[in-house]
Simulated assay, not measured.
Amino acid sequence: MKKLLNLTLALAFSIVSLSAFAQDATHNLFSIHTFKVNLETDGSHLTEHDGNLYTWTVLNAAGTADAASTSYSFVTGSSAENLNEVEIQWLVAGDYLVQVTEQNASGACTTLRQISVKVNSGDVDLLVEACDAAGNPLVDYAVASPDLTPLSTCNDMSGKIITRGSNDFGSSVRYFKVSMTAGGVAWTEGSWKFDYVATAGTVTSTDATVGATDVNVALGTSSIVLKVEVANTPGPIASNSINLNLTASAVSINTNTGDVNETGTADNNKAKDAIVILPSPKTTDISVN
């Protein structure tokens, strides 16, 4: 009988322990989520709660203390009458309890509700890839032996007639796709920016604001295409090929509380292999006698 009692107590303790660590929701780092109570079926606020005071708090996983204020941010207010929903942005990975306290308008009686949330870890990460005009990467580096052929092509004036009396061999246009992730997912919940250096050419974009040394991307956009125009350099291949690459630095996203920088070694902040623009022969004008 004693053994049976011990087994029962052990099983009960295991169940309690499991429930204590179970998560009601799993969110990604830097994501914004809306927490709600007292909703009508159409999503509106239940009128029977009008005038009640709501106080929202974020606690540690055990519920014994407030979570660090730097680990989250209330996008909306956290305490007010009729505040039956709030937006919270997660800034640090970990386990949390989101709690709401509702107080009657006519008295001090309160009701508390809690929900447990696990916030996955992750970093701010920028990826730079050589691509076509539509943003499709030129090389699939996921395969065992990537095909680098698309990176090395003739200049855009190859095979075209050079105007008589001119030594203008024109220019070539190439593209780079720049993608931002935060917490392992595409970043669309804030603006982002980075500094850049191109080995040649002039950089522009219809997807972002491009300055002489920096790029600023608006809220809602997780990837952009940068267009680089380079003056052709005709002549022998060995000395006149253009090796074009683009490197990003000072990468950051903008959260509700300000900028969060990319940390660690920025391995993805430069296209893995340069785009090579091959020259055409520097053929002179045709002379006739």
Results as ranks from 00 to 15, higher is better:
33 H>F: 08
251 V>N: 07
18 L>H: 04
19 S>I: 13
44 S>H: 06
39 L>G: 01
16 V>I: 15
120 N>C: 11
116 S>H: 12
216 N>C: 06
116 S>A: 15
97 L>Q: 14
107 G>H: 05
86 V>L: 05
234 P>S: 06
226 L>M: 11
195 D>M: 07
143 V>Y: 08
156 D>K: 03
145 S>E: 15
203 V>N: 05
142 A>T: 15
126 L>S: 09
150 P>R: 08
25 A>R: 04
98 V>I: 15
154 C>M: 11
228 V>N: 03
14 S>F: 15
27 H>W: 14
110 T>N: 00
254 N>R: 01
58 V>N: 01
145 S>K: 03
13 F>W: 03
3 K>S: 13
261 N>T: 04
13 F>I: 10
120 N>H: 08
134 A>M: 01
270 K>I: 15
177 K>S: 10
40 E>N: 13
72 Y>T: 06
259 D>E: 13
80 A>D: 06
139 V>L: 13
5 L>K: 09
280 S>K: 07
52 N>T: 09
194 F>R: 02
267 D>Y: 12
204 T>L: 04
189 E>D: 12
262 E>H: 02
60 N>P: 04
280 S>F: 06
108 A>C: 00
11 L>P: 07
135 G>I: 07
180 M>V: 11
273 D>F: 09
193 K>Q: 14
71 S>L: 03
137 P>S: 12
79 S>H: 05
95 D>T: 10
161 I>W: 09
119 V>I: 05
36 K>E: 15
184 G>L: 11
172 S>I: 01
245 N>K: 08
116 S>G: 10
122 G>M: 02
87 E>S: 08
38 N>V: 03
217 V>W: 00
197 V>Q: 13
277 I>Q: 02
235 G>M: 03
94 G>S: 07
133 A>G: 10
176 F>R: 04
111 T>M: 10
206 T>C: 09
62 A>W: 15
237 I>P: 07
271 A>I: 04
118 K>T: 14
33 H>C: 03
122 G>A: 00
255 T>I: 10
77 G>N: 07
10 A>R: 09
163 T>S: 12
132 D>H: 01
110 T>L: 09
259 D>V: 11
115 I>N: 02
88 I>H: 03
272 K>P: 04
206 T>K: 03
273 D>N: 14
126 L>Q: 12
107 G>L: 06
280 S>C: 04
50 D>F: 05
194 F>K: 06
96 Y>F: 14
52 N>M: 10
76 T>H: 03
266 A>T: 12
240 N>F: 02
200 A>W: 05
6 N>S: 00
157 M>F: 06
83 L>G: 04
263 T>L: 15
17 S>K: 08
281 P>Q: 08
58 V>L: 01
88 I>W: 12
81 E>V: 03
10 A>P: 02
91 L>A: 09
148 L>N: 07
262 E>V: 09
201 G>W: 05
75 V>D: 10
159 G>L: 11
105 A>Q: 06
187 W>C: 00
165 G>T: 11
141 Y>L: 12
10 A>I: 15
245 N>C: 08
75 V>I: 14
221 T>N: 10
179 S>H: 04
36 K>I: 04
128 V>A: 12
123 D>P: 09
156 D>H: 09
77 G>M: 03
152 S>R: 11
169 F>R: 02
133 A>N: 07
188 T>Q: 13
135 G>F: 11
199 T>C: 07
107 G>R: 00
107 G>E: 14
